[in-house]
Design a binder for these strands. Structure first.
Lengths: 338, 338
DNA sequence: CCTGGCACTCTGCGCGTGCGAGTGCCAGCA
DNA sequence: TGCTGGCACTCGCACGCGCAGAGTGCCAGG
């Protein structure tokens, strides 16, 4: 176990390194923080911290920088979440209140997060699978062509074209629409398959094919995991990554374009509370030198999706976590209102 | 007027520079192209081209690189559009055919363009203002709350929540839905205001407030220019920009995040035919060292939106133009089918 | 267990040099 | 008049060198 002072030294190293982006030496440390001991003592502590793997030196006889393990300890034990100031909170609320629809909410959230954290922001659209159905609408576009529109409680709208095996009359369509809604409106997506199972039986034999087709399209839409979308913003902040970044930025941009990767990343995070993944804790190779701070957000007490930021491992964790948490909270409020 | 050979020299310079990314000298030119003259002659030609402002030397006694004016001449007079090969065309078609809905079409198009051109791809969603209405749906969510869903012929769906001034019965709602659709279905957006003008008069006095509210929300949705969305992809290709690019890439990323800028840019382009904007021809400062190749696409003969790529001025214009044109063509087909 | 001192190591930077690519110009030739 | 070969000149760039500065590890003393 590390002594109290050594933890303080680690904290000081992380803070200074995050601020200056340069390896920090023993002398500078004692000057900028009142540790009450001399540089020589700090050097001993640093040697110990290095032995334990919390810090490292990029080159012999340069200062130390924190390792992923060091940041981990810092986040878990040494730093809290820095709350947003009251004016900041008001600004967040004002900005988000101006949104007109779901797309706009998500777009504004991305912008806001990117600006607050000066990092890359990622916001997942409210997930279909955890939402409830508000309404299912069926529109007849042609005798054997139906458009299926699914509206969720989070305001998301999905539509699908359905080619029917046989012409389908207006009356039957209205019938199906009514029965469908009376069964699934207000229910969770996961319950829908069970609820509509026996629906075809209520129809005339010649309509059953069409009903089955419509229903299977609906179920398809519900489970279609790859329809989980997300919005990204603030990529220009990547240019503040480091001095060497031609090589650093490339894989990150590539990873960000692979929405699958990001969705997986967000999916792995805890459903409640904040998740911080640091450097090599992230499985995807291109993101090995980044950290991801994510949190669930939702209209009720329950998370319907996640949002977060991607930045260099050398980031201001307390500030970033504060911003992410605050934004998630207000987005949840907005969604609950709409 | 420049002699034929001088134009050939310019063409050769552009081609070589695009290929090697390095200033090209007189000797290398004669070696790689059979111009039938000696380096000395080429030097004279180059001096002339430089006087005219078509090429420049980055430093005294280095090779020459084309100026924006040089690229302009190259694009207008010296190079055609390089058509895609048959296998490439098949690949494009196959890839786009797999799309399930409009979002997917756009997403795939972006991916495809970015891969084909190895540059940043920008695809505008089919514009509302030039489309026609396929269907307007009204859903009663609460006694005084209506959801308005607008479906366009390009498959785009817009929804808006409407808070009514007074409760609105199911019957009135059905009435409004029917009247509305009979008037506007299949009509162009621009005609809609005129067509629904006198609609409130057909309703009982107590419903008119609500009808008016719904209609104005509809009109709002139609004109809402800022709802013009676009999707961007292939930003990782920016890292191939140049060696110096920390400074170059930053403003470009920022400009790309400002969708307003991009929309303006696309909006300024010709409606039909391909538009190439080179370097300083682009008003926005951050994009001064880029070129934009854009073209309209649409389901009928008519363009409903634009797509294009953003890349360094030093790009393979014939190839890029070929890819952009081909993709636009196939996207148009896909939209027409759906 | 902390401290001051000391010798050591390594990176980054400024400077001077040489090389090579490329140019402009000129005189000669078709 | 236009093309060619030759020649002197100009830079940019890569390389090597040496120096200063920051930081370390270790040791002996309090």
């Amino acid at each position: 176990m590390l002594s109290e002072r050594r933890l303080q030294v680690l904290r000081a190293i992380v803070q200074d390194y995050v601020g200056t982006e340069e390896p920090v030496g023993s002398k500078a440390l004692t000057e900028r923080h009142s540790l009450g001991v001399s540089p020589a003592t700090v050097r001993n502590d640093m040697a110990a911290l290095e032995d334990e793997g919390y810090i490292a030196q990029p080159h012999t006889s340069a200062g130390r920088i924190p390792t992923d393990k060091g940041y981990r300890l810092f986040v878990d034990k040494l730093a809290g979440v820095k709350p947003m100031s009251a004016p900041e909170r008001r600004a967040i609320q004002n900005f988000l209140d101006g949104a007109v629809d779901l797309d706009d909410v998500v777009a504004r959230t991305v912008r806001l997060l990117a600006q607050l954290t000066r990092q890359v922001a990622v916001v997942q659209y409210p997930s279909l699978t955890r939402s409830t159905v508000r309404h299912v609408e069926l529109l007849s576009l042609a005798p054997a062509r139906v458009m299926l529109v699914l509206i969720t409680d989070t305001g998301r709208v999905e539509q699908r074209m359905v080619d029917c095996p046989a012409p389908f009359g207006e009356a039957s369509l209205a019938d199906l629409r009514a029965r469908l809604n009376s069964r699934v409106a207000g229910r969770r997506f996961t319950d829908v398959p069970r609820l509509v199972e026996d629906l075809p039986e209520a129809f005339e034999i010649e309509d059953r094919g069409t009903v089955t087709t419509v229903l299977s399209t609906l179920l398809e839409t519900l489970v279609e995991e790859n329809e989980e979308r997300l919005m990204i913003g603030g990529t220009a902040n990547l240019t503040r990554f480091g001095h060497d970044f031609p090589l650093t930025i490339r894989p990150v941009l590539e990873a960000l374009e692979e929405q699958v990767v990001l969705l997986k990343l967000l999916g792995e995070a805890k459903d409640s509370g904040m998740t911080v993944r640091i450097g090599h804790e992230i499985a995807h190779e291109g993101l090995n030198s980044t950290s991801v701070v994510s949190v669930g957000y939702g209209s009720g007490g329950e998370a319907v999706a996640k949002l977060g930021v991607v930045g260099p491992t050398r980031m201001d964790y307390p500030g970033t976590m504060g911003a992410v948490r605050a934004v998630a909270r207000y987005v949840g409020q907005i969604l609950a209102e709409s």
